[in-house]
Amino acid sequence: MRHTLAVLVENNPGVLARVAGLFSRRGYNIDSLAVGRTDNPAISRMTIVVEGDDRVLEQVTKQLHKLIDVIKISDITADEYVDRELVLIKVSAEPEKRGEIMQIADVFRARIVDLGRRTMILECTGNEGKVKAFEESLRPYGIKELVRTGKIAMLRGSRYTSITTNGSREDE
């Protein structure tokens, strides 16, 4: 099964190499990994989607915890959360097809961010299912290039994952 981990790390050089190296040497499969700074510039947040049973996941979590730069790990899979991915797709768009493609974009609330003579670039955000459906809808027109960010996720409601809490909890 797939798990989504929210991991807070100190924003030190090499922290990505430490995390990536750990997954590789212990034989865990990363589905996707997205990383960026948080509101605190000293802290980065990784969203890691990892494949494995509970036992694997327990090991992943514990081993990640052993990295000194890793501050906190939350497995948010079982919780209510919002997840998003951004995709950019460059698709063949001969003038006569543009209308159709723009309709598809509308359906997915995607945006056209570049228009070339024969191609256009569309930007779409959404959860994995939506992104996948969007990609499938464009496939018949000829996808020239595709780039995805990997998933980022956040708990719904007033609960949050931050360094001041010891495990995500309800905010007062």
């Binding site: 050089p13 090499g14 190499a17 430490r18 190296g21 040497r25 052993k66 990295l67 000194i68 730069d69």
Partner: peptide, 14 residues
Amino acid sequence: ITGITIPITKHNYL
């Protein structure tokens, strides 16, 4: 050497 020893140190610093 910090890259090399990531898998074999508890932690390392440059």
